[in-house]
């Protein structure tokens, strides 16, 4: 059930995002999902990739500050209310979402929600108990 996201520190400078994606492309690493959080001065790029270890390595080699964070990925039916039902479950359990982002699968019938939650273990059991499907790292890599 372990699933890690990588986060990369970015200054707000032209071309930095392109540089990162280029490095990953050159090493054959596929981006499964991404989100970019930013302030006036800097940004944090968060990525789910098919090979986390290698992505960290090549980005570090290129001089970036890289962090790894465990996240939880939930698969929901890609239709109205899919996200709402997951969030309701978390709210009822009083679990606070630090941030989240979402992406759709190629086949188009499932949406994947990535959550960063302080108490991951409890979040996992609460979500599973409510019947939500959680994806493992292997499943995400195999997408």
């Amino acid at each position: 059930m372990q699933l890690e996201q990588i986060a990369i520190f970015l200054e707000n400078k032209a071309g930095r995002l392109a540089e990162i994606t280029q490095i990953l492309a050159e090493h054959g690493i596929n981006i499964r999902a991404m989100s970019l959080a930013d302030t006036a001065d800097f940004g944090i790029l968060r990525l789910i990739v098919n090979d986390t270890d290698r992505a960290c390595q090549v980005l570090r080699d290129a001089g970036f500050t890289v962090g790894r964070t465990e996240v939880v990925v939930v698969a929901v039916p890609d239709r109205p209310g899919g996200l709402a039902s997951v969030l309701n479950t978390l709210t009822e359990a009083e679990l606070n979402v630090e941030y989240m982002y979402a992406f759709s699968q190629k086949s188009g019938d499932t949406g994947l929600l990535i959550f960063r939650i302080e108490d991951l273990d409890r979040a996992r059991s609460v979500l599973q108990a409510a019947g939500h499907r959680l994806l493992s790292g292997e499943e995400v890599s195999a997408l």
Binding site: A37, I44, Y99
Partner: peptide, 13 residues
């Protein structure tokens, strides 16, 4: 920003 102080959350930085 070194890896020791880096965080994936804006508020920490």
């Amino acid at each position: 920003v070194s890896e020791a102080v880096f965080s994936d959350e804006i508020k920490h930085l």
